[in-house]
Design a protein around this nucleic acid. Sequence first.
RNA 1: CGGAGAGUAGUGUAAUGGCAGCACAAGUCCUUUGGGAGGAUUUAUUCCGGGUUCGAAUCCCGGCUCUCCGACCA
Length: 414
Amino acid sequence: MLQSKIFSKTLKNAPSDEKSQNAILLIRAGFIDKLSAGIYSYLPLGLKVIKKIENIIREEMEKIGAQEILMPALHSKENWEKTGRWGIKEMFKVEDKYGLGWTHEEIITPLMKNFINNVSKLNDLAVYQIQTKFRNEPRAKSGILRTKEFIMKDLYSFHCEGSDSLENYYEKIKNVYWDIFERLKIKEKTYLTLASGGSFSKESHEFQTVTPAGEDLIYVCENCGAAINEEIKGNHNECPRCGEKRFKEEKAIEVGNIFQLHRKYSEVFGLVDSDGKPIEMGCYGMGVSRVMGAIAEIHNDEKGLIWPTSVAPFVFHILALDSSEEIKKSAQKIYNELSLIKKEALFDDRENKSAGEKLVDSDLLGIPYKIIVSKRNMEKGVVEIKDRQKGTVKFLKPMELNKFYKSKICLKNY
RNA sequence: CGGAGAGUAGUGUAAUGGCAGCACAAGUCCUUUGGGAGGAUUUAUUCCGGGUUCGAAUCCCGGCUCUCCGACCA
């Protein structure tokens, strides 16, 4: 993409009405725009990050055979009255007849009844969606970490009663979640945390990513790294995994939450197996837009964002440091080569910007690799590659570039 | 929903009872190009409603909004 054409703009100053790092950086870099507290637009750069996160999640969901669907955001009151959750104040109501979905048990359970009622066997049937959820938060905060409208992946699994299939699946999902967080580069700061089940189940597990902007307090076991949410800390004096009694207190943001729903919703909607027993269910959430905020919180420095390659809006940022014909042509050539392989290059072709502005903007945007084309480098017959995260610089001959691109991007995705 | 703070141009900031100013951004033109460069020129601002006053961005009352803390929160 040509930077001169992109619908976005960087800001020199931080907006005065945002305090969280993710909001300040994402707004300054032109990834998002705030409409109101907890309500944001995603601009082209921000949407690219969202799409990359979604695709990583999709790939991991497919690995375990979960199938993607899309359920409505507008829900009939009737379904919610059946489970007694119509009264929940987080739900936005529409004309006292509909509500905006903040989770989808009330929709997926009757939907599944049309397909798997009276079955005698289920082999890890699971469906998921990536969809916009609404929640009437009394206090939206911390940029895109806690919003009234957000993008979420929700997965639902179904298991015949009496087997340990739900428990096994639950463990499987934990592993898949770790794989996802590894690819999103937040695994190191994320802890599996025992938590209450809220209106879903007795207890649940949360995946909590440590950041000062986090709203939860978790206690991380000094021995094994398992964690407990403050809300149920009173019930656990020792680590549920290893029995250790020393904990480290951390502020964290919940990026995922998994529940064993058991028969809670299948009973209500009459989703039963061939023996007439309610089908066991699990649900597994992950906040896509919240994950983006968490990544921004963790991966940044005083110059701006530092995207992991897996979710960066672009992997390469080609900078033509001056606008002489020679430099422009050379940079354009590199851009064309990259565009043939994929759409991973942003080309700063702006003519009225100084070299300094281009470098500073590039740092703010946080694109992993700068490819710097300048007079200085041209005279030596090289292009310069600068690593945003490490700050390291190397010089490559034009013929070595192709190998470099391929080492940084995964071609199978394109 | 309670508490605190804050709303001036697209963004950031000055003016605290007396001409709404500056910087950046944006538009046009020229110069410049290794860490937010320079010149010329143009555009754009006091959250809303009421009150006090000769005069209000400034003081008072009400509302709205934003941020932070708390409550709440798959």
